[in-house]
Simulated assay, not measured.
Amino acid sequence: MLILNKLLSTLALACSLVFLVGTVNAQSEQQVRSELQKKIGQNTKIKSVSQSPISGIYEVLVGNEIFYTDANSKYLIQGEIIEIATGKNITEQKQVDLNRIKWSELNSSNALKVVRGNGSRQLAVFSDPNCGYCKRLDKSLQQLDNVTVYTYLIPILSADSAQKSKQIWCSADPQKAYVDWMINGITPTGKGDCSTPLDKNMTFAKTYGITGTPTIFFTDGSRFPGAVQITDIEKKFSSLK
């Protein structure tokens, strides 16, 4: 019984220490956040502050951007933390996780859709009809087989982008009108007077920090910005198997 009592006392002390360390860490993170917010001003909102893998260095999230600071909030560090033993880029992995979405949050009814082959592999592309890199990507995507591509139009470049997006969506065959314009240079002829999902797509883009086109999403929620090479897309598809 005496041994059992000692064991219980030891466990209770250990739990108390863990709770105390957690409380102290939380207080330190809050203090760093408060002090840093004062220094950078209220116009730049800090989303969170947490302890980084390096003692005395804190990870700071501003929007979806990652920075680091010291315990006194004297320095703001912009760069990457790499674990030497494994070569793991901790900052890059955190950035990937921050940019990840839930595939289920995408509403396919707001997208143009094309299926090639058995359509088993899926990806979503956010595109502007006046985006040169989007046109380059769309030409590359023609090489993919057994794929379903959902294209969400977000006219962010100009007023003409909005007009062309409406004309494409309101065409008799929106997907064909999109391909004709993006790949063959045939101007869409739709009147642009139908109901479109463009506002919903723009809201989604703003909510998830999609600020450039093209932006690709895969079914695991990860995103690839820019005109990604087909080899990189194929490699990503292989990793999802």
Results as ranks from 00 to 15, higher is better:
Leu7Ile: 12
Gln37Asp: 00
Leu2Trp: 13
Thr69Glu: 03
Ala124Val: 09
Asn43Tyr: 12
Asp97Val: 00
Ala71Val: 15
Asn25Ala: 10
Gln78Leu: 10
Ile156Leu: 10
Val149Glu: 00
Asn64Gly: 02
Tyr178Asn: 07
Trp103Phe: 02
Ser238Gly: 04
Glu59Tyr: 07
Lys236Pro: 02
Pro188Glu: 07
Leu144Phe: 09
Lys236Cys: 11
Ala111Ser: 14
Gly119Thr: 03
Gly87Ala: 08
Leu8Ala: 11
Leu198Gly: 04
Glu65Tyr: 10
Val149Lys: 02
Ile46Ala: 10
Asn72Thr: 15
Tyr152Glu: 07
Asn72Gly: 15
Thr207Leu: 08
Tyr152Thr: 08
Val114Trp: 09
Cys131Leu: 01
Asn110Ile: 00
Tyr68Thr: 00
Ala14Val: 11
Thr215Glu: 04
Phe218Met: 01
Ser238Tyr: 09
Asn107Gln: 10
Arg33Ala: 15
Gly119Val: 08
Asp180Tyr: 04
Lys166Glu: 09
Ile230Ser: 07
Val96Met: 10
Leu106Gln: 03
Asp199Arg: 07
Thr151Ser: 05
Ala159Leu: 10
Ser50Asp: 14
Ser9Lys: 13
Ile66Gln: 00
Gly190Trp: 08
Asn89Trp: 01
Tyr150Arg: 06
Ala71Met: 13
Asn146Ser: 03
Leu2Gln: 10
Phe204Gly: 00
Tyr152Asp: 01
Ile233Asp: 07
Ile40Asn: 14
Lys45Asn: 05
Met182Thr: 14
Ser48Asp: 15
Lys206Cys: 03
Val125Thr: 12
Val49Leu: 11
Thr44Arg: 12
Ser120Cys: 11
Lys113Arg: 12
Gln30Ala: 11
Ile216Lys: 07
Ser140Val: 11
Cys170Leu: 01
Gly87Gln: 07
Thr211Arg: 05
Ala172Gln: 14
Pro155Thr: 10
Ser171Val: 02
Thr69Pro: 05
Cys170Thr: 01
Val179Lys: 11
Gly226Met: 00
Thr151Ala: 05
Gly226Ala: 04
Gly221Leu: 02
Val228Trp: 02
Lys47Ala: 05
Thr203Gly: 09
Val18Trp: 11
Ile90Tyr: 13
Pro53Tyr: 03
Asp199Leu: 11
Thr213Phe: 06
Val228Met: 06
Ile46Arg: 00
Ser9Phe: 13
Lys241Gly: 15
Ile183Gln: 10
